[in-house]
Computed example of a mutant assay.
Amino acid sequence: MHRTTLALLSSVRTPQQFARGLACAALCLLLAACGFHLKGATPLPFTTIYTNIAENSEFGAALRRAIVASSPDTRFVAEPAQAEARLTQLANSQSLRELSLDAQGRVEEYELNLEFIFQLTDAQGHIVLPPTTLHSTREIPYDDSVVQAKQGEIGLVFKEMQQSLVDRIVRMLASPDVTSAYRQAATLPIDESAIPAAESRNTPAPAPQAPAPWGAPRVIPDAGSH
């Protein structure tokens, strides 16, 4: 580090370059002193994973990209019987709730809600991560005089909420608790509703219990408090 700093300072030719070089050198020394390092990959304890979330859905594609980026050695497989772990979507919904109305009864503010429920099991059906519910809620002002613009804004916020859920799922899968549970899965209870691996090859993947996210949200006409 010190040799690099000296080389950086010796390579400058003008006072301005010297000042910039000195500032960069000071920053390098500060980061080194703080133990700074770039965030690397976080390998998952399994190398193959199956999910019933549609690959061609925006949510499914985002989740796959995030998991592979976090754990490059992990790959998705098309059949449950080929997977060491199974991420099962149990429920998935999004909705708009009328949060406030003006004197004419027009919506002034919406509450956006996403809910995703999933679990993680190993190849034998042991429950590594029990059914887990993730919520995301945002509030957004609304103006019916610019409907198209506001609809675009709502769609953008839903996508941001979607990415937030994806990030939370990946962090949970990579957590020490899940890693430890997976390695000790033989001691965990079995999901009785799981399809046996021997029968799964000829059985279609279960369909989501709710419409895929980021389509037309369900509107809840409720202006009361929450």
Rank of each mutant, 00 (worst) to 15 (best):
T137W: 05
R75N: 01
I190D: 08
C24I: 01
Q163N: 15
F158G: 05
P208H: 07
Y110V: 06
M172F: 02
Q89F: 02
L120A: 02
A205I: 09
L27H: 07
Q184Y: 11
L27R: 12
P204Q: 10
P213T: 06
R168V: 08
L63E: 05
A223G: 14
S193L: 14
S10K: 12
A223V: 02
P15R: 13
F76W: 12
P72D: 03
G215N: 09
E199T: 14
A212Y: 14
S164P: 00
S175V: 11
A103Y: 04
P206R: 06
Q17P: 01
I195C: 15
L112I: 07
H126Q: 00
A185W: 09
L44E: 10
S93W: 07
L101P: 08
S100L: 01
G105T: 00
Q163I: 05
D143Y: 05
A216I: 13
L22K: 12
V219C: 02
G60H: 03
G152P: 10
A7W: 07
Q148Y: 10
T5C: 11
L99T: 04
D177A: 13
A61Q: 07
T121E: 13
P43N: 06
S193D: 14
F59P: 00
E84A: 11
G60W: 03
T42D: 13
Q184C: 11
P45I: 02
Y50T: 09
F36L: 08
A62F: 02
I169R: 01
Q16D: 14
P221C: 00
Q184N: 15
E153M: 12
F59I: 01
V170R: 10
L90A: 06
I154V: 15
V219D: 00
A197D: 00
A69H: 14
D122H: 04
N92I: 12
R65D: 15
P206N: 04
V178I: 14
Q209I: 00
K150C: 10
L30S: 13
F36Q: 01
S193A: 13
G35V: 07
A23C: 09
R218V: 11
N202K: 13
V157F: 07
L99R: 14
D122P: 06
M1V: 13
L30N: 09
F36H: 03
G21A: 07
D73Q: 15
L129N: 08
L22G: 08
D102C: 04
P176H: 05
L156C: 03
E109L: 04
A210P: 02
F76E: 01
S71K: 05
L44S: 03
R201A: 15
H135C: 07
P130L: 09
R218F: 09
L101T: 09
G215E: 10
I195P: 11
F158M: 12
I140F: 11
L156D: 10
A23G: 02
V107D: 03
M1A: 14
Q16E: 15
T48F: 12
P211F: 08
R86M: 09
A185G: 05
W214I: 08
C28A: 13
L22D: 12
R168P: 00
V77R: 08
D102Y: 06
Q104G: 13
I117E: 05
A23F: 09
H226G: 14
V166S: 00
G152Q: 14
D144P: 06
